[in-house]
């Protein structure tokens, strides 16, 4: 009896396998000890249903897990937006609301109207960031393309040594050269110009490395074809290589611009009065003399302390361009980022 039982379970397992196995495999590789005379006491349909049910429950769990994680990943963004639209008393009430009762849109104009100690307001700082971002991105990409091309396609003495040296610097924490760069730009009296924000960060070894690898993947036959058609080498770079590596170039451009947008340490260290950057602007406190809040006696007072709702409005404004970039260029950004992973 016991023996028979084990045999049936064995058959059951085999049946499970058979349902998922290619036909020829089941025909040839079946162990000889197992017989397939299970049709009498074994219901294939029922078993299949059981499996399907198990699969569905498993899927349900997977989806629940993924949804919880997605909600948690998204929550900070949602909280940021709704907090920026709440009134300060609503934000401070002991039971937080997950949807604003009253939308206080004037939080945004209130933040925009504020100017810092140097008299520069949001628009000035935004302009600073865009100008710095534009120049550092365009010049940076240009330098990156030239260098990557030379390293990928040209032969000159010391090329490999140079490339090895460049890669070696990737191991060294950026802070180590930030210190000397600080001294250098101070010595050059650059502190209050926008060069100071651009020049030290034009070369990014990592992007050179990325683009070089991309260039090297372009087959030689293309170069030969271009030569036959009478194209010069520079023409080949501009007309063939750059279009072919356009996705990588777009990724690099985007990531470089995002880098400028998010730069915080260097602007803070340099502390120029006229070239403040957007991320530094967020760290300051925002108070508002025009928005009145009731105190505990019901009197309206204005608050000189920094208000979280205003800060969240500022945070929203700084994050918005990144979101827009994400929506329109998600493919490029994800590709650029994932490439960095597979190439590392």
């Amino acid at each position: 009896m016991a023996k028979k039982k084990t045999e049936t379970t064995n058959n059951l397992e085999v049946e499970q396998i058979i349902t998922e196995m290619p036909v020829e495999a089941s025909a040839t590789e079946m162990p000889k000890t197992v017989t397939l005379d299970v049709s009498t006491d074994f219901d294939v349909e029922r078993q299949r249903k059981k499996q399907r049910a198990a699969k569905i429950t498993q899927n349900v769990f997977v989806y629940i897990f993924l949804t919880i994680c997605a909600v948690l990943a998204f929550l900070p963004f949602y909280w940021m937006v709704i907090s920026s639209l709440k009134t300060e008393p609503e934000y401070r009430q002991s039971n937080p609301t997950f949807f604003p009762h009253t939308f206080q849109w004037k939080n945004y104009p209130a933040v925009l109207a504020q100017s810092d100690n140097n008299g520069s307001n949001f628009w000035q700082i935004l302009l600073n960031t865009l100008v710095v971002g534009f120049f550092s991105t365009t010049i940076g990409v240009f330098v990156t393309v030239l260098t990557a091309y030379a390293l990928a396609r040209m032969n000159f003495k010391g090329k490999n040594a140079l490339f090895a040296l460049m890669l070696a610097t990737m191991m060294i924490p950026g802070e180590m050269y930030t210190l000397t760069n600080y001294l250098t730009v101070s010595a050059m009296d650059w502190q209050d110009t926008f060069t100071v924000m651009i020049v030290p960060f034009l070369v990014s070894v990592y992007y050179i490395y990325l683009l070089r690898n991309n260039f090297m993947q372009i087959p030689n036959s293309l170069y030969q074809a271009a030569k036959v058609d009478g194209l010069s080498d520079f023409g080949y770079l501009v007309k063939v290589m750059i279009p072919l590596t356009a996705p990588t170039l777009v990724s690099i451009t985007l990531l470089k611009f995002i880098g400028t947008w998010n730069s915080y340490i260097w602007p803070r260290l340099i502390n120029t009065s006229s070239w403040q950057m957007i991320t530094n602007w967020v760290t300051r406190g925002f108070s508002d003399k025009d928005i009145m809040y009731p105190n505990k006696f019901g009197d309206s007072i204005y608050s000189s302390e920094s208000l979280t709702t205003l800060k969240m409005a500022a945070v929203c404004m700084v994050s918005l361009p990144l979101f827009i970039l994400f929506i329109f260029c998600r493919k490029y950004i994800m590709r650029g980022v994932s490439k960095s992973g597979t190439k590392g």
């Binding site: 990943a73 998204f74 900070p76 963004f77 909280w79 940021m80 907090s83 995002i258 947008w261 998010n262 915080y264 991320t279 967020v282 760290t283 800060k311 969240m312 945070v315 700084v318 994050s319 990144l322 979101f323 970039l325 994400f326 950004i333 980022v337």
Partner: peptide, 13 residues
Amino acid sequence: LPYLTNSLAMGAV
């Protein structure tokens, strides 16, 4: 989504 954020801003959130 959280990859493309400003760490200072999200820290504040």
